[in-house]
Amino acid sequence: MALIDLANPTRFLAFAERALPWLAGAAAAAFAAGLYLAWFVAPDDYQQGATVKIMFVHVPAAWLGMAAWALMSLAALGTLVWRHPLADVAARSAAPIGAAFTFLCLVTGALWGRPMWGAYWVWDARLTSMLVLFLMYLGLLALWRAVEDPARAGRLVAVLTLVGAINLPIIKFSVDWWNTLHQPASVFRLGGPTIDPSLLWPLMVMALAFTLLFAVVQLAAMRNEILRRRVRALRIMQAQAAQRA
């Protein structure tokens, strides 16, 4: 089956039904392996003790929070340039998932920071950038909610997504600059610049597990969104039929 065939929502639904169990199984297996590695294989940090293990959730969540925006940007191009019928379905589904991963990243960051800094939140450059990303996700979700017609909402959101994609690196740069301006580099950096291979492997497996989880949730959400739009279309047809009757 060529990728283009999946453009047809009906084909996509059939594909999603077949692919979902396999993907879910793979995600479960990857999580089992990743959690085993994280709990029992990866060593405790000599400074941070067991709290370093928060990293195995925090870092993949941060990656996927950003990856979801990248996916949405592609989908936005699909909506605006190629007018692909599934593009805004994909964007619609990815937005809350990306927001959830970003939120997970923020929460785990706060929990990690508590023993490190003695405060749940310090205005660390990376965390602050994630907070701004989270705000942008919430704005996007608010825009989706504000427009009733999904096709129109999709086009508006696509514009905002692309503007966001251009702006996010600028925001990241500004926040870094702002942060170094105020705080010299003595701050502990989450994730650290160098990482020991004994931590790297479990991290990679966890990242794979999170990516598979993302794929599962994304596919299921797209299926639900397509069905939701069909229900909406049927109800509009019902109202129109009543008009003619």
């Binding site: 009733e148 109800r235 019902q238 109202a239 009543a242």
Partner: peptide, 9 residues
């Protein structure tokens, strides 16, 4: 027949 539909439609 339309009681349950959102009035937007």
């Amino acid at each position: 027949g339309l009681a349950h539909l959102p009035a937007a439609y």
